[in-house]
Write a protein that binds this DNA or RNA. Structure first.
Lengths: 239, 239
DNA sequence: TCAAAAGTGTTCTGCGTACACCCATGG
DNA sequence: CCATGGGTGTACGCAGAACACTTTTGA
């Protein structure tokens, strides 16, 4: 029998690009008898873990339940272990009633996932909320999201994460938009183009944009194998 | 009362540069009645956590116990949650006898610390072992160290981690050596010099190397504040 | 024929790379 | 005066920044 471990949970920050915004997947907290259901707080998708489950597997299970997706881009973000993180008290009350168990301390392992919004099964409980101006979430979930965004911004600069947020076929402009909105910086469009065109792992397709009221753009795909080679060829030391 | 949590431990990978090698801090596993003491296996410094302790605090406590150092450069590396990580069985036996408790599953939060070897209190139980050709350690500690090294190599390229491994006053050559040994690459010496000289956050001191049988080198220090400014001024997108 | 975005060209500057060379010190 | 490493100079090429310009489409 595989029972719940009452000390450890997994929470997932699932991010998606919904032009022109970056959005995060939130879940409406279920109402529980005895807790004021007026408090429609939101939370990250997550759950206590099972005794015999690797956390990466737990995270994938949770993601599948809420999005219908498998093979998601997933990274461990880190552990949130503040002994007082199960605050405010009403949130803790809710959690106890939901799982029908007493809880003392729960540490959570935060995960970080990137998906393409189009491929998701949308369900009534899931809310895709812009990452700017988030409401107050339960526990320390606001903090976890902030940490995830910082991680994303950092890693975007040196790794090809953006392609996880875009469809398989994309235009340079789409990449450009993703960079602008996530990093919050202005970039010279034509230099950005030129730069991307010289990246060997971006393969131009025999296909162009359709149904647009301007010159249709070249479509590209990201080639993981070629990226591997490209990455090996680099040995810059930058600070 | 603050009791042990039998589900979660903290392990620390403490790295130091001992010319010309990178070394990791290991602890000799204590002998326990009923376990063959011939098995002189080594382990990372670490321990089960206390119920009301933030893990960062646990890690610092452990590091202080083994090195006498406070204010260490410390980062969370990640969680190791394989349900079968407490293998081989003899290691699990040893752990149970040591803490006088039964153990089912323990997940560990791995931390990553960089220190200057000179400033450490050396004690008889602590062993500084070269990171190449490590012996077989208990549990998954070899895996944890590999992960730590990967992390170090990655982060070295974009962050000024090397200065955590060097004394406060250092020469360009020392930085050069650290990079060479950790990244395992060959670098053009004179270009490396030039590059470092242009970094605004490396401040030349009114002091030179002493007692060397060659031209004494300029000493520098790393200025954290200046680095902060330097970092803000960068907004490269690199892939 | 106009708006909108694709895509090209040009100039300047700075940085990485490769490599030759001179300088200071202890033995 | 030699070995050792510190430190400078030069020349080339590529890549980023800034910005003007041309092209292709739908409406």
């Amino acid at each position: 029998m595989n029972k719940l471990n009452l000390h450890i949970s997994v929470d997932c920050v699932v991010l998606a690009y919904d032009y022109p915004q970056l959005k995060v997947l939130l879940i409406e907290r279920e109402a529980v008898n005895g807790i004021d259901t007026k408090l429609h707080k939101l939370k990250l998708p997550g759950h206590l873990i099972y005794e015999r489950e690797d956390f990466d597997v737990s995270a994938r299970r949770i993601l599948f339940e809420h999005t219908g997706l498998e093979n998601i881009f997933l990274r461990q973000l880190g552990v949130f272990s503040d002994p007082d993180r199960l605050n405010p008290p009403i949130d803790l009350e809710w959690a106890k009633k939901t799982i029908h168990e007493d809880l003392n301390r729960v540490v959570t392992i935060a995960y970080f996932a990137l998906i393409q919004l189009k491929s998701v099964n949308r369900t009534p409980q899931t809310i895709w909320h812009p990452v700017d101006d988030l409401p107050e979430l339960i526990f320390d979930h606001n903090l976890i999201i902030r940490r995830a965004l910082r991680h994303l911004r950092d890693e975007m600069r040196s790794k090809p994460l953006c392609f996880q947020l875009l469809p398989k076929k994309f235009t340079i402009r789409q990449v450009f938009e993703v960079y602008k909105v996530i990093l919050g910086i202005s970039i010279d469009k034509s230099n950005f183009r030129r730069k991307l065109k010289h990246l060997t792992f971006l393969v131009p397709l025999n296909e162009k944009e359709k149904d647009v009221s301007h010159k249709p753009a070249q479509l590209y795909r990201f080639d993981k194998k070629l990226y591997g080679k490209y990455e090996k060829g680099r040995n810059e030391i930058i600070f």
